[in-house]
Design a protein around this nucleic acid. Structure first.
Length: 393
RNA sequence: GGGUAGGUGGCCGAGUGGUUAAAGGCGGCAGACUGUAAAUCUGCUCUCAUUGAGUACGCUGGUUCGAAUCCAGCCCUGCCCA
């Protein structure tokens, strides 16, 4: 590919490229560019929001450039204040390292492991002494930091900003110096941090990195960005059925967004929105679970939700022998939620919401008395809610 | 260091001695309707138990028959001043 073709390919879908001109110049150097993507292992699981930038990194990789995946093991113990209205609780080092492990494993569902350089910023930050930290800090002014929207907002709203949070952009910027990054990728919320990297590189006499920021992917609620802490995410490791199901629950508007950001396509507005959504869900499920997984999840989903044929659907199974003694509707419901779905529900919640509302059904028959004894047989289907059902074996 | 405002349930936010487990909103969950969409409607939303009980309004003590509400000390945050 010519530099010009590369440029078009690599800039596609970005919210902002600073600047295309600089990127073109770098591409014309004819050497592999060092493309940095920093990941913040504050949560172990990668979700589709992360994949937007990872996909872009892969495009660079496929075009012959060097992907540098920076694990922010040190910075994660601070917590990136980006886009946050409150201080984030810090993680311990062990938590961070454990997260980083699963994180990279999942990242390599997208990236080519053999061609990816992985670096940990703890490697340099842990060695810094106070003198060096002061020197680094002296290069940035408070005013510069306060240009950042989220700091500014918090300041204006009278919310606390702890000083260590101000360090985050500086540290992220220093990472770029250490890596000698030619390009840094990130979400739009990373723009400021990435720009700090440019400043620091300039001071160090390095060529400045090109900034490519990708749009932020909204989470399942369609409002806030996808994030583990909002609980509105689709994990890369979510099982196929769950992934498919979550995608089916998004609004039509959000579906269009997902088409654009995750598939790089525009949704065909001719067909029924539901069909478009099924197609989106199948494609994404296939992407992370293999080509067969999407169609399989789709067929399964249709059996279960379109035809409402629970008897024929793939369901989690629960052994009758594992059930507690003196089984009542209440204890059966609690046990099933816990073992099949890992959900702890209070008795009041189970009683009032699930049982007495008629949500809990055994083979389609409502079990509305929490205290009533039940004796499920092998093959019975226990439905807890529209989205939760199991087969007893 | 001084002054001042404040700290209420996941969040926001009422509440200033007693029907206050604490109005209202948001969020969340369940149901109806549907396309597991949107919109709408209904119910639930501290915990345990069948009516009932326990725990809860920054923390610790105190006043009182009774406190989220009054008093004292402490901790924390914002703002103004130094």
């Amino acid at each position: 590919m010519s530099p010009e073709q590369q440029l078009a390919h690599l800039a596609a879908g970005a919210a902002k490229v600073l600047s295309e001109k600089e990127l073109l110049e770098k591409l014309r150097l004819g050497r592999p560019l060092r493309v940095k993507l920093g990941v913040d292992p504050t949560a172990p699981d990668l979700h589709l929001g992360h994949t937007v930038a990872l996909e872009k990194l892969r495009q660079f990789q496929e075009t012959g450039h060097q992907a540098v995946l920076l694990i922010g093991d040190f910075t994660a113990t601070i917590g990136d204040p980006s886009g946050r209205s409150a201080t984030r609780p810090p993680l311990t080092r062990d938590e961070v390292l454990a997260n980083a492990e699963t994180y990279t494993d999942q990242a390599f569902k997208i990236l080519d492991r053999a061609k990816t350089e992985i670096v940990y910023n703890g490697d340099w930050f842990r060695k810094m002494n106070y003198e060096e930290i002061l020197r680094l800090n002296s290069r940035v002014t408070l005013q510069q930091m306060l240009q950042r929207e989220d700091f500014r907002n918090r300041l204006d709203a009278g919310q606390e900003i702890r000083l260590h949070e101000l360090q985050y952009p500086i540290m992220q910027g220093w990472d770029s110096v250490e890596i000698r990054a030619d390009v840094e990728l990130g979400g739009t919320d990373q723009l400021f941090n990435i720009l700090v990297g440019r400043d620091l590189q300039k001071e160090e006499g390095q060529p400045q990195q090109v900034v490519i920021v990708m749009p932020l992917l909204e989470g399942l609620d369609g409002v806030r960005k996808m994030s583990k802490s909002y609980g509105n995410y689709i994990g890369v490791n979510d099982p196929p059925q769950e992934m498919f199901g979550k995608l089916m629950s998004v609004s039509d508007e959000l579906m269009d967004r997902y088409y654009q950001l995750l598939l790089g396509e525009t949704r065909d507005s001719a067909g029924h929105p539901m069909d478009a959504k099924k197609s989106l869900a199948a494609k994404i499920t296939s992407r992370y679970h293999g080509a067969d997984a999407g169609p399989a999840a789709r067929a399964d989903w249709e059996t279960r939700f379109s035809k409402k044929d629970l008897a024929a659907a793939e369901l989690p199974e629960i052994g009758i022998s594992s059930l507690p003694a003196d089984l009542t509707v209440l204890s059966l419901t609690a046990h099933t939620f816990r073992t099949a779905f890992g959900m702890e529900k209070s008795n009041g919640e189970l009683r009032k919401q699930f049982i007495m509302s008629g949500s809990v059904q055994l083979n389609g028959e409502k079990l509305i008395d929490p205290a009533a004894p039940v004796a499920p047989q092998p093959g019975d289907v226990l439905k807890l809610s529209k989205k939760h059902a199991v087969r007893l074996i």
